[in-house]
Amino acid sequence: MATLAADVPVFRELTPRQRVLRRLLRRRGAMAGLAVVVFFIAVALLAPLVAPYDPLQTSWSAVRKAPNAMHAFGTDEIGRDVASRVIFGARASLLAGLVSVCISLSLGVPIGLLAGYVSGWVDSLISRITDAMLACPFLILAIALAAFLGPSLTNAMIAIGISATPIFIRLTRAQVLAVKVEDYVEAARAVGNSHLRIALRHVLPNVVAPLIVQATLAIAAAVIAEASLSFLGLGQQPPAPSWGSMLNTAKNYIDNAPWMAVWPGLSIFLLVLSFNLLGDGLRDALDPRR
């Protein structure tokens, strides 16, 4: 990122990064989203401290009890504390969101960079495969991959990560195509830099902004995807809690124990909403036309 400053005209008091930050700070929605995300991360990290009970502790005498003084969110079908499970479940959701997007990024960005920078038949091949993958619904792809890899949280993250990769390939490629004809890239080439150096030092830093936005939105999608896979029994394995698997069980008791569905669902909604708000804010803040 250090080279970035040299290529862009500098204002007197603010670096571009500071301006972006300032614009972001002014957006109330994005800040609220960030606050909630930070809150969930804190809850996930401190789960053993903030959870009132062991999330796996069953109690035959307290099966499907409505919220009360002892259990603020009620208990589930085998007498576990729903609040504690929601708190520990934040770990699975956040982990899935972050790790799977890291997987998508680490696969999609190099491939997209390659396609966009090298062009020719390599580009054609990559683009056709990407088109084919994008023709298949994201969740269907993830479900098939997760079923193939076997049900576990790790495999669900890999499946989601791979399924979300084509979007990043396509985005990176399009950005690279736009950037590589810029004067500073031409200049770097004229000076005799190697292709690898040009791609990594001059092209990549200038395509990062839209990737950050896309990654943030992809986390939101990945959180929902993890919940969906766990809902289908392909994610987090019992008895470990995950919001998706909690909903899967809760759907059988929606009539007589609605609290089992309300809290995990609300948590997914809040977390996804926050990432979406943050992503929208980042998009506006990083928009060079503003």
């Binding site: 969906s228 809902f231 909903l247 609605p258 669902g265 909604f269 909403l273 979406n276 929208d280």
Partner: peptide, 18 residues
């Protein structure tokens, strides 16, 4: 719009069943 984007539809489905 954000509400629509952020609600897992399977959850919405469950909540609407009864």
């Amino acid at each position: 719009a954000l509400w629509g984007l952020s609600t897992p539809n399977f959850w919405l489905g469950i909540m609407l069943i009864p």
